[in-house]
Amino acid sequence: MKTVTLKINGTEHTAEVSPRTLLVHLIRENFSMTGTHIGCDTSSCGACTILIDGKSAKSCTILAVQADGTEIITVEGLATAEGLHPIQEGFHLNHALHCGFCTAGVMLRAVELLEKNPNPTEEEIRWGISGNLCRCTGYNNIVKAIQWASAKMQGKELPSTEPVFV
Protein backbone atom coordinates (compact mmCIF):
# COMPACT_ATOMS: atom_id res chain seq x y z
CA MET A 1 0.00 0.00 0.00
CA LYS A 2 1.12 3.55 -0.67
CA THR A 3 0.10 6.78 1.00
CA VAL A 4 -1.29 9.39 -1.36
CA THR A 5 -1.83 12.99 -0.30
CA LEU A 6 -3.44 15.41 -2.70
CA LYS A 7 -5.62 18.49 -2.77
CA ILE A 8 -9.07 18.15 -4.27
CA ASN A 9 -11.01 21.37 -4.81
CA GLY A 10 -8.76 23.11 -2.29
CA THR A 11 -9.06 20.54 0.51
CA GLU A 12 -6.24 18.19 1.40
CA HIS A 13 -7.03 14.47 1.36
CA THR A 14 -4.93 11.43 2.29
CA ALA A 15 -5.54 7.77 1.56
CA GLU A 16 -3.77 4.43 1.64
CA VAL A 17 -4.06 2.85 -1.80
CA SER A 18 -2.80 -0.12 -3.74
CA PRO A 19 -0.66 1.00 -6.72
CA ARG A 20 -3.27 -0.42 -9.10
CA THR A 21 -6.02 1.84 -7.77
CA LEU A 22 -7.11 4.25 -10.47
CA LEU A 23 -7.39 7.93 -9.69
CA VAL A 24 -11.08 7.97 -10.62
CA HIS A 25 -11.77 5.24 -8.05
CA LEU A 26 -9.83 7.11 -5.38
CA ILE A 27 -11.94 10.20 -5.99
CA ARG A 28 -15.27 8.42 -6.19
CA GLU A 29 -14.86 5.65 -3.63
CA ASN A 30 -12.34 6.85 -1.05
CA PHE A 31 -13.44 10.47 -1.05
CA SER A 32 -17.12 9.94 -2.06
CA MET A 33 -17.08 12.58 -4.78
CA THR A 34 -19.22 10.97 -7.44
CA GLY A 35 -19.46 13.93 -9.83
CA THR A 36 -16.54 12.45 -11.78
CA HIS A 37 -18.04 9.66 -13.87
CA ILE A 38 -16.72 6.42 -15.28
CA GLY A 39 -17.96 5.95 -18.83
CA CYS A 40 -15.94 3.75 -21.15
CA ASP A 41 -13.11 3.03 -18.70
CA THR A 42 -10.72 2.96 -21.69
CA SER A 43 -9.71 6.68 -21.97
CA SER A 44 -11.98 7.19 -24.98
CA CYS A 45 -15.10 8.94 -23.71
CA GLY A 46 -13.84 11.69 -21.38
CA ALA A 47 -16.59 11.31 -18.72
CA CYS A 48 -13.85 10.94 -16.07
CA THR A 49 -12.08 14.17 -17.06
CA ILE A 50 -10.73 16.23 -14.16
CA LEU A 51 -8.05 18.91 -13.89
CA ILE A 52 -4.69 17.85 -12.45
CA ASP A 53 -2.51 20.87 -11.74
CA GLY A 54 -4.67 22.73 -14.26
CA LYS A 55 -4.36 20.14 -17.04
CA SER A 56 -7.41 18.20 -18.18
CA ALA A 57 -6.86 14.50 -17.68
CA LYS A 58 -8.72 11.23 -18.00
CA SER A 59 -8.72 9.92 -14.44
CA CYS A 60 -9.50 6.35 -15.53
CA THR A 61 -6.05 6.14 -17.11
CA ILE A 62 -4.02 7.63 -14.28
CA LEU A 63 -3.00 5.74 -11.17
CA ALA A 64 -3.93 7.22 -7.82
CA VAL A 65 -0.27 7.02 -6.78
CA GLN A 66 0.69 9.23 -9.74
CA ALA A 67 -1.50 12.01 -8.36
CA ASP A 68 0.41 12.19 -5.07
CA GLY A 69 1.21 15.85 -4.33
CA THR A 70 -1.01 17.26 -7.07
CA GLU A 71 -3.93 19.70 -6.97
CA ILE A 72 -7.11 18.40 -8.52
CA ILE A 73 -10.30 20.13 -9.56
CA THR A 74 -13.44 18.07 -10.09
CA VAL A 75 -16.91 19.22 -11.07
CA GLU A 76 -17.70 19.67 -7.36
CA GLY A 77 -15.05 22.41 -7.30
CA LEU A 78 -16.39 24.57 -10.14
CA ALA A 79 -19.12 26.52 -8.33
CA THR A 80 -18.20 28.93 -5.54
CA ALA A 81 -20.17 30.65 -2.78
CA GLU A 82 -20.88 33.40 -5.32
CA GLY A 83 -22.64 31.01 -7.66
CA LEU A 84 -22.10 28.78 -10.64
CA HIS A 85 -18.92 28.85 -12.71
CA PRO A 86 -19.54 30.58 -16.09
CA ILE A 87 -19.17 27.22 -17.86
CA GLN A 88 -21.91 25.74 -15.66
CA GLU A 89 -24.11 28.75 -16.28
CA GLY A 90 -23.44 28.40 -20.01
CA PHE A 91 -24.47 24.72 -19.98
CA HIS A 92 -27.59 25.54 -17.98
CA LEU A 93 -28.78 28.43 -20.14
CA ASN A 94 -27.99 26.75 -23.46
CA HIS A 95 -29.55 23.36 -22.72
CA ALA A 96 -26.15 21.77 -23.24
CA LEU A 97 -26.97 18.60 -21.38
CA HIS A 98 -29.59 15.96 -21.61
CA CYS A 99 -28.75 12.88 -19.54
CA GLY A 100 -25.78 14.68 -17.98
CA PHE A 101 -23.40 11.76 -17.90
CA CYS A 102 -20.69 13.42 -20.00
CA THR A 103 -21.31 16.93 -18.65
CA ALA A 104 -18.82 17.10 -15.77
CA GLY A 105 -16.01 15.93 -18.03
CA VAL A 106 -16.88 18.26 -20.90
CA MET A 107 -17.08 21.25 -18.57
CA LEU A 108 -13.69 20.57 -17.00
CA ARG A 109 -12.14 20.08 -20.42
CA ALA A 110 -13.74 23.38 -21.51
CA VAL A 111 -12.31 25.15 -18.46
CA GLU A 112 -8.77 24.28 -19.56
CA LEU A 113 -9.55 25.10 -23.18
CA LEU A 114 -10.80 28.60 -22.23
CA GLU A 115 -7.85 29.10 -19.90
CA LYS A 116 -5.41 28.52 -22.79
CA ASN A 117 -7.54 30.07 -25.51
CA PRO A 118 -10.07 32.53 -24.02
CA ASN A 119 -11.71 33.27 -27.36
CA PRO A 120 -11.74 30.04 -29.39
CA THR A 121 -13.34 29.64 -32.80
CA GLU A 122 -16.10 27.09 -33.24
CA GLU A 123 -13.59 24.74 -34.89
CA GLU A 124 -11.15 25.16 -32.00
CA ILE A 125 -13.93 24.34 -29.55
CA ARG A 126 -14.99 21.25 -31.47
CA TRP A 127 -11.35 20.13 -31.78
CA GLY A 128 -10.79 21.02 -28.13
CA ILE A 129 -13.58 18.75 -26.88
CA SER A 130 -12.82 15.94 -29.32
CA GLY A 131 -11.82 13.71 -26.41
CA ASN A 132 -15.28 13.96 -24.84
CA LEU A 133 -18.18 11.96 -26.17
CA CYS A 134 -21.78 13.06 -25.73
CA ARG A 135 -24.33 10.50 -26.87
CA CYS A 136 -27.50 12.53 -26.51
CA THR A 137 -27.28 16.33 -26.74
CA GLY A 138 -25.24 16.22 -29.91
CA TYR A 139 -22.58 18.91 -29.39
CA ASN A 140 -24.27 21.95 -30.96
CA ASN A 141 -25.55 23.23 -27.64
CA ILE A 142 -22.32 22.23 -25.91
CA VAL A 143 -20.42 24.42 -28.38
CA LYS A 144 -22.89 27.25 -27.73
CA ALA A 145 -22.44 26.84 -23.98
CA ILE A 146 -18.67 27.11 -24.29
CA GLN A 147 -19.03 30.18 -26.53
CA TRP A 148 -21.36 31.70 -23.95
CA ALA A 149 -18.88 31.00 -21.13
CA SER A 150 -16.06 32.47 -23.22
CA ALA A 151 -18.03 35.71 -23.65
CA LYS A 152 -19.02 35.82 -19.99
CA MET A 153 -15.47 35.23 -18.74
CA GLN A 154 -14.15 38.04 -20.94
CA GLY A 155 -16.92 40.45 -19.95
CA LYS A 156 -18.18 40.55 -23.55
CA GLU A 157 -21.73 40.86 -24.78
CA LEU A 158 -23.48 37.54 -24.11
CA PRO A 159 -24.70 35.55 -27.12
CA SER A 160 -28.35 34.58 -27.43
CA THR A 161 -29.40 31.48 -25.57
CA GLU A 162 -32.42 30.93 -27.81
CA PRO A 163 -32.48 27.34 -29.08
CA VAL A 164 -31.24 26.82 -32.62
CA PHE A 165 -33.05 24.17 -34.61
CA VAL A 166 -30.85 22.47 -37.16
Binding site: G46, A57, I62, E112, L113, S130, G131
Partner: peptide, 12 residues
Protein backbone atom coordinates in the same frame (compact mmCIF):
# COMPACT_ATOMS: atom_id res chain seq x y z
CA UNK B 1 0.54 15.71 -32.44
CA UNK B 2 -2.86 17.14 -33.40
CA UNK B 3 -3.84 13.68 -34.64
CA UNK B 4 -2.56 11.70 -31.67
CA UNK B 5 -5.43 10.58 -29.46
CA UNK B 6 -7.26 13.59 -27.96
CA UNK B 7 -6.41 16.71 -25.92
CA UNK B 8 -6.57 15.04 -22.49
CA UNK B 9 -4.36 12.17 -23.61
CA UNK B 10 -1.91 14.63 -25.20
CA UNK B 11 -1.61 16.41 -21.86
CA UNK B 12 0.05 13.25 -20.51
Amino acid sequence: SKLIADPQVRNF
